[in-house]
C-alpha cells in the first residue's frame, strides 16, 4: 500500500491494545500513519506501540476510557491535526432476551454508540478539510439471537455511519464501517461457549477470519485511494451472511 506523505498523517485507533484493534494499528502504521493506540489497558497499548516500533513505524500509547467525554476531548486536542479515526473499542456479552435488563442496554449503547459519537465529533473537528473515519460494526447487525443489545448497538453503528457520511461529505471526510464476521481472536478462543469447528462449518470457505483480514479492510477504507467511498458498511465475513444454501 502506498505510503502517506501528507502532513496530517495521524491515526487514532481505539481499543488498539489487542486483537482486531492491534492488527488495525499495525496496518495503519505500515501504511505510513503515526498511530495513536488508545486503550483502556495502557500496558496493552504500549505493547502494540512496541510492535509498531519494531516494524519501523511510529506509534504512541494512550490510556483512554472512551466513555469519558472529557478524556476523549483532551486526548484529541493533544494529538492535533488528524487524518484518520478508527472506532474499534467496544464491548460484547451474551444474555438471552428474557434475562436482559434496561441497564444492560444502556451500558452497551454507552460504549458502542455514544462513545463512538463523542470520538467522531472531536475527531471531525481535528480533521479540518479531509480525513477518514472507520467504525467497526459487526455482522450481528443483520440480526443475532442471544445478544440483542449488542446486535442492535452495531446496527446503530451502521445507521450512524451512513448519516454522518452525508453530514461530513462536504468537508471531504469519508465515514465508513467494517462489519466483521467470526474472527479468530484470543478473546474468541478463550470463550468457553464457543465451538470453533462448529463456527468454521458455517463458513462457505471453511475458515474463520483473522484480525489481519479486518485490518486490511480498515486500512483500505482509511486510505486516500478510497476517497470516493463513503457511508458504506463492508461485511468482512467470508460470505457467511450470504444465507443458508451452503449444502451442509
Amino acid at each position: 500500500m502506498a505510503q502517506h506523505t501528507t502532513e496530517a498523517n495521524v491515526a487514532i485507533v481505539t481499543g488498539g491494545g489487542a486483537g482486531i484493534g492491534r492488527a488495525i494499528s499495525l496496518h495503519l502504521a505500515e501504511a505510513g500513519h503515526r498511530v495513536i493506540v488508545a486503550d483502556l489497558n495502557g500496558a496493552m497499548a504500549e505493547e502494540t506501540v512496541a510492535l509498531i516500533t519494531a516494524a519501523g513505524g511510529q506509534g504512541q500509547a494512550e490510556t483512554l476510557d472512551i466513555t469519558d467525554e472529557k478524556a476523549v476531548a483532551a486526548m484529541i486536542e493533544r494529538v492535533g491535526p488528524l487524518r484518520c479515526l478508527v472506532n474499534n473499542a467496544g464491548i460484547f456479552n451474551v444474555k438471552p432476551f428474557d434475562a436482559l435488563e434496561a441497564e444492560d442496554f444502556r451500558r452497551m449503547y454507552e460504549v458502542n454508540v455514544v462513545a463512538m459519537f463523542s470520538l467522531c465529533q472531536c475527531a471531525a473537528a481535528a480533521m479540518g478539510q479531509g480525513g477518514a473515519i472507520v467504525n467497526i460494526a459487526s455482522r450481528a447487525m443483520l440480526g443475532s439471537a442471544q445478544y440483542i443489545h449488542y446486535a442492535t448497538s452495531k446496527a446503530a453503528v451502521g445507521g450512524f455511519t451512513r448519516s454522518l457520511a452525508l453530514e461530513l461529505a462536504p468537508k471531504g471526510i469519508t465515514v465508513n464501517a467494517v462489519a466483521p464476521g467470526v474472527i479468530e481472536t484470543d478473546m474468541l478462543r478463550a470463550r468457553s461457549d464457543t465451538n470453533l469447528d462448529a463456527l468454521r462449518a458455517l463458513q462457505p470457505g471453511g475458515t474463520l477470519g483473522t484480525p489481519d483480514d479486518i485490518a486490511a479492510a480498515v486500512a483500505f477504507l482509511a486510505a486516500p485511494q478510497a476517497g470516493f467511498i463513503t457511508g458504506q458498511t463492508l461485511l468482512v465475513d467470508g460470505g457467511r451472511s450470504l444465507g443458508g444454501a451452503l449444502g451442509i
Binding site: 457520511a165 452525508l166 461529505a169 464476521g181 462457505p204 470457505g205 475458515t207 477470519g209 483473522t210 483480514d213 479486518i214 486490511a216 479492510a217 486500512a219 483500505f220 470516493f228 467511498i229 463513503t230 457511508g231 458504506q232 463492508l234 461485511l235 468482512v236 465475513d237 467470508g238 460470505g239 451472511s241 450470504l242
Partner: peptide
Amino acid sequence: DEAAFISGESLRVDGG
C-alpha cells in the same frame, strides 16, 4: 489477498 475474508459483497463506489 488483503480481501481474503471478503466474499459475496458489493462495494458501492459512489461518493455516498
